[in-house]
Design a protein around this nucleic acid. Structure first.
Length: 885
RNA sequence: GGGCGUUUAGCUCAGCUGGGAGAGCGCUACCCUUACAAGGUAGAUGUCGGCGGUUCGAUCCCGUCAACGCCCACCA
């Protein structure tokens, strides 16, 4: 056997195994256990502009754990990777590039040429993030890889659009939308971020026509007065009642507008008078609709003022605001200016201040789909984990608004709506160059706009499996793999993506697209701050992998993932788990020389040593628990269960206890011990594989039998009913307690741990006495004692000795050679005090008749047992103290 | 303004249906003991945010207050 290095070096190992797995087709859907249903996950497709960050690392670790776990359990598993064209983000990036390199705008190039550039860019850079995913160990089936602009998804987009268009659920309408003046496109409500801004409240005088009266109106956007088409007051406001029905004159423009009453107006806010600008304010638009007010658009597409605002035409809104205020002041119609903080909508994509604008756009009426998407969650056809997140989902889906799906961009799925050049008929078609369905005219013009990116990603669960092409669906196994089992993602796209997939998936198939949605935490820095370039606190997963290995990173992320919302990632923590990975490596280094002849995994339960029974029993519990925890998405508990077992049970006790056996001359005992060590280690490595795939595959090569293949496709450990040994576990717990107590005693009185001293055990439990007697050799070895004398409690106790009392047992170290008695006496006194307190606490319960009356029997019994234990312990301590008086 | 979440050891967090407070890291002491110093052994540390209630019994349930965080809605 080759030399094994002292520390585990992940470099080289990781890439090597990933390549082997991929080449051998380990990630392909294969059912090794035909009785089990397939297990499918759809990967949230990263943006084509994306770069791997810790969020991906977490998201993918979770998905890969589930996929590897289910694969090992024998399920036919499929993890589908994909990529999103990310309309706005990508277009912006390429626009910047072309401008930097060629000094040209997209308009200079024209639509076709520009799109060629985008495709070229996608080919060059689009794959970067996917290669980075391989570094994470993602065991997805790359043959299923789908890009949202591929032919498949494009066909899905067209089919869905045309069907809904023909049902009348997709319609074109003038409506007030959020306009991004930088991107010069509509954006959806959800793409608007509200940020607090320092603004001003401008109080302006509006004259009332044919009267000396003026109305004082407060606004934060005085430049919009050019778009005013009414002044509104509350119908119950006595102050202005007499003015309703009259006209007001807009300052600067001189236009006359009606003074109307509308309940939206809050009498308490501002002056109680509202200027109504239906073209550029969401609420005003609603008022405008109710009162049939005209709409005046005062903005150009780039956000500058148009000729409806002649005095400020061509200026940006910011400049126009300044100029308007100046003009009002000159006209003596500006009353006062106040400071005012308010929320201003910004475009999530460009950062520009969003301008509400009325514009002709395409919408989907989602009312019915949203209702169904709510009931599907209420009936748990789709379950959120943790459950609390369904509130976020409901908050959107219970108040659906029309989804604006058109974007004034070039990069994306062009809207499949055509207008006949001859008869003006408008129709939707899946064909690229349809003829007019009404008059058969060959020349038709396609709507130039493209669809919202989420339109195609919302269809991804369908399109990645071939829908709507029947042949492709068969080829990709649509019937077997739809719906998928779980969607793993962050909370930020519950509405953007989860809700859309739910609506679209159910609309097409009448089935939810996935059964669970596991919402994982957000990765932050160790102080809980968001990782950002400007704060300089970003941890780059690729660098982290290079420094500490992928397995350590994955373990850290997994052990931090349960039902929590945040993960505060501390480098010290990662280092700790790196050490754990190394610990496993070294455990193997120790056992490996003994394994050469331990080729057989069969273990005859009847012949087992009690230590072997103990470790097998503990391992069995771990297997059971870990399996359950993975199924519950409790990666934190699953991982720490394995961690505790490997560290505390297997390494600290079982390996330590085995050293003597392995160095002895008893060949049959040695062989059996090697078998058990090997068996357990094989189980450990399998248990860990979903979390730490690389090191486990590397170690597996030394552990596998000749007829066994890679660990990726080995069977996951299962609970073994033959490996339940409760009494051996209880005895071992006692043994550990005694050894620890002896070490503790030595430590307390400053006896070197190495120094072998005499020890006497007293117990009133016959079974324990027997067990200790059998274990005296191990006691000697692990506690470093000379002789272990075991006696009945009733007889002879050493007069002068240090003592520690545990349940049913007293341990004495005779005093000869002991250095510091006072320290020990102090400790005894502290023990006494503590034990007294504990005793009083339970004793009080027992003396409380109400407790005795109301508490369930098993609790009372437990408390009674505790009380007698404390009492016994107390007596021992007091006895011992007396010896020193 | 509406909603949600958090508050437990120095730090980061676990604690399932109420029944004697836990882990990791850090810290202290002693150890280079032949798998591992990325190690070993032992140890210390908590009015479980405040107040009130329900209960025989509350970290857990209810009410209330406080601090922090997030989301949504209002650009008058």
């Amino acid at each position: 056997m080759q030399e094994i290095s002292k520390t585990y070096d992940p470099n080289g190992v990781e890439d090597k195994w990933y390549k082997v797995w991929e080449e051998k087709g380990c990630f392909k859907p294969v059912a090794r256990d035909k009785t089990k249903p397939p297990y499918v996950i759809l990967m949230p497709p990263p943006n084509v502009t994306g770069k791997l960050h810790m969020g991906h690392a977490l998201d993918h670790t979770v998905q890969d754990i589930l996929i590897r776990f289910k694969r090992m359990q024998g399920h036919e598993t499929l993890w589908i990777p994909g990529q999103d064209h990310a309309g706005i983000a990508t277009q912006a990036k390429v626009e910047q590039k072309i401008f930097a390199e060629q000094g040209k705008s997209k308009h200079d190039l024209g639509r076709d040429k520009f799109l060629e550039e985008v495709w070229a860019w996608k080919e060059e850079y689009g794959g970067h993030i996917l290669n980075q995913f391989k570094k994470l160990g993602d065991s997805c089936d790359w043959d299923y890889f789908t890009f949202t602009m591929d032919d498949g998804p494009s066909a899905a987009v067209k089919r869905f659009f045309v069907d809904l268009f023909n049902e009348g659920l997709i319609y074109q309408s003038d409506y007030i939308i959020n306009w991004d003046p930088v991107l010069q496109s509509a954006i959806s409500d959800a793409e608007v971020e509200h940020k607090e801004a320092q603004g001003k409240f401008y109080h302006i005088h509006y004259r009332v026509k044919d009267s000396n009266q003026v109305l004082e109106i407060a606004t934060t956007r005085p430049e919009t007065l050019f778009g005013d088409t009414a002044v509104a007051v509350n119908p119950n406001d006595d102050r202005f009642e007499h003015l309703i029905g009259k006209s007001a004159i807009i300052p600067l423009s001189g236009r006359e507008v009606p003074i109307i009453a509308d309940p939206h107006v809050d009498m308490e806010v501002g002056t109680g008078c509202l200027k109504v600008t239906p073209g550029h304010d969401f609420n005003d638009y609603e008022i405008g609709k109710r009162c049939e007010l005209p709409i005046i658009n005062i903005l150009n597409k780039d956000g500058t003022l148009n000729d409806n605002a002649p005095q400020v035409e061509g200026l940006s809104t910011k400049e126009a605001r300044k100029k308007t205020v100046q003009l009002l002041e000159e006209a003596n119609q500006l009353v006062k200016v106040e400071d005012h903080t308010h929320q201003v909508g910004h475009s999530q994509r460009s950062g520009a201040v969003v301008e509400p604008m009325v514009s002709k756009q395409w919408f989907i009426n989602t009312d019915e789909m949203a209702k169904r998407s709510v009931s599907d969650v209420e009936t748990e056809a789709m379950k959120f984990v943790p459950k609390g997140w369904e509130n976020t989902y409901f908050s959107y889906q219970k108040n659906p608004r029309p989804w604006c799906i058109s974007r004034q961009l070039w990069w994306g799925h062009q809207i499949p709506v055509f207008t006949c050049n001859s008869c003006d008929h408008q129709f939707a078609s899946e064909e690229e160059t349809p003829v007019c369905v009404k008059c058969n005219h060959k020349e038709v013009t396609q709507d130039p706009d493209v669809l919202d990116t989420w339109f195609s990603s919302g269809l991804f669960p369908l399109s990645t499996l071939g829908w709507p092409n029947p042949e492709k669906m068969k080829e990709k196994g649509f019937d077997r793999f739809y719906p998928s089992n779980v969607l793993v993602t962050g909370f930020d796209i519950i509405f953007f993506w989860v809700a859309r997939m739910m609506m679209m998936g159910v609309k097409v198939t009448d089935k939810v697209p996935f059964n669970d949605t596991y919402i994982h935490a957000i990765v932050r820095d160790k102080d809980g701050k968001k990782m950002s370039k400007s704060l300089g606190n970003v941890i780059d997963p690729l660098e982290l992998i290079k420094e500490t290995g992928c397995d350590a990173m994955r373990f850290t992320l997994a052990v931090s993932s349960g039902y929590n919302r945040n993960i505060n990632l501390d480098p010290a923590k990662i280092e700790g788990y790196r050490n754990f990975v190394n610990k496993i490596w070294n455990a193997f280094r120790f056992i490996s020389p003994y394994l050469e002849n331990a080729t057989d995994e069969a273990i005859d339960v009847a012949d087992l040593h009690h230590h072997e029974k103990w470790i097998l029993s503990e391992l069995n519990d771990v297997v059971k628990s870990v399996t359950e925890k993975f199924d519950d998405y409790r990666f934190d508990e699953a991982c720490s269960t394995i961690y505790q077992f490997v560290y505390e049970k297997y390494c600290s006790w079982f390996i330590e206890l085995s050293k003597g056996v392995l160095n002895s001359n008893n060949e049959s005992l040695k062989a059996q011990r090697a078998n058990v060590l090997r068996y357990c280690f094989r189980q450990i490595v399998k248990l860990l594989h979903p979390v730490t795939p690389f090191i486990t595959e590397e170690l597996w090569q030394f552990l596998k039998r000749e007829d066994e293949d890679l660990i990726v496709i080995q069977e996951y450990p299962k609970f073994n009913t033959e490996h339940v040994f409760n009494s051996d576990v209880q005895n071992m717990e006692k043994f550990i307690e005694i050894v620890t107590s002896i070490r503790n005693l030595k430590n307390t009185v400053n006896i070197s741990p190495k120094e072998e001293i005499e020890v006497r055990l007293f117990t009133d439990d016959e079974g324990l006495a027997k067990y200790f007697y059998q274990s005296r050799g191990f006691l000697k070895e692990l506690a470093k004692v000379k002789a272990g004398k075991i006696k009945d409690k009733s007889i002879e106790r050493p007069a002068k000795s240090v003592m520690k009392a545990t349940t049913h047992t007293e341990i004495f170290l005779p005093l000869d050679g002991v250095i510091d008695i006072n320290v020990f006496v102090e400790k005894l006194k502290r023990d006494k005090e503590k034990t007294e307190k504990e005793f009083q606490k339970v004793d009080k319960k027992l003396k409380n008749p109400k407790f005795m009356e109301n508490a369930p029997d098993d609790i009372v019994e437990k408390v009674r047992a505790e009380a007698s234990e404390f009492e016994e312990k107390l007596k021992s301590i007091e006895n011992s103290l007396e010896n020193f008086q």
